[in-house]
């Protein structure tokens, strides 16, 4: 906890608020409370999400393009080996789930996987480090895990959704795509029911894609916050306080190790579903 003066609920609320800023009356202003952030309306930016995700995406592309610039077919160096290992893993996943031919899918899957993985990975940085550093620099809020911001997850899933729509129409034609939405599963006489079912089906893709990632990371972050509160109630050396402090260390270790699995799994699920949705867009089914 950053200060003894704040309560547990204040601590949680503080950790769950983004650094939301917007242009007001000609100068950039950042919200201090959740209500203030809400009042800024749509034209505001979560600067922490943007900054962290941009830095991580750039780091990912920097290392991968450095390897790509000197693609020696001989004995690979360590970095090259790692990058190629990731690429082969993605390539195998794409080959396994995507049957059509499309040069966009594999790089898209790679970007999705690495970007989400790195953003999720920020969850493993001890929870107070970055916000406290930000506070030292005079920034009130800083959420370091971008995937706990629905803007980030929806930003990706909606992009994927539009790519899926684009290829659905490109591959099947506008008529074919419309027919898929209206003429099944009940045939042309069940048209309203078809539209309803397929419409829900269609909209569920981006929503579930982004909410699954957001929900998992948000819940994980929340558990880290709760674990951090245990030792944070320290008020003098008593048995209870010592037990809580020890529990915090053990629990954050345990949850952190478990979280390594979750962050990888969530990145993998997002990637695999992206590939599968794109595969469905390329296939004439029924």
């Amino acid at each position: 906890m950053s200060s003894e003066a704040i309560t547990s609920s204040e601590y949680i609320r503080h950790h769950l608020q983004n650094l939301t800023c917007s242009l007001q009356q000609g100068h950039f202003h950042c919200a201090h409370t959740a209500a203030e952030a809400k009042a800024m309306g749509f034209w505001a930016f979560n600067v922490d999400t943007l900054l962290v995700s941009f830095v991580l995406g750039t780091v990912f592309l920097f290392f991968f393009s450095r390897v790509a610039k000197s693609p020696a077919p001989g004995v690979p160096s360590g970095m090259q080996n790692f990058v190629e290992w990731v690429i082969e893993f993605i390539d195998n996943s794409v080959r396994g789930s995507f049957s059509a031919k499309n040069n966009l899918v594999a790089p898209l899957a790679l970007t999705v996987f690495m970007w989400i993985f790195l953003m999720n990975f920020m969850d493993l940085i001890p929870i107070d480090w970055v916000p406290m550093l930000a506070a030292k620099l005079g920034v009130g809020h800083f959420k370091v895990v971008s995937t706990t911001d629905p803007n980030a997850t929806f930003g990706m899933s909606i992009s994927v959704f539009f790519i899926v729509l684009y290829y659905s129409i490109k591959m099947k034609g506008l008529g074919g795509f419309a027919a898929e939405l209206t003429l099944q599963p009940f045939g042309k006489f069940g048209l309203p029911a078809n539209i309803f079912l397929e419409g829900v089906n269609l909209i569920a893709k981006p929503v579930s894609l982004s909410l699954r990632l957001f929900g998992n990371m948000y819940a994980g972050e929340m558990i880290f916050i709760l674990i951090a509160i245990m030792g944070g109630t320290w008020a003098g050396f008593t048995l209870v306080n010592a037990t809580l402090f020890g529990s915090q260390i053990l629990l954050s270790l345990g949850w952190g190790i478990f979280h390594i699995l979750i962050i990888t799994l969530q990145a993998f699920i997002f990637m695999t579903l992206t590939i599968v949705y794109l595969d469905m867009a390329h296939q004439e089914h029924h």
Binding site: G41, P150, N151
Partner: peptide, 8 residues
């Protein structure tokens, strides 16, 4: 946790 222009 507001949806705002960050999305875009």
């Amino acid at each position: 946790m507001n949806i705002n222009a960050t999305l875009i």
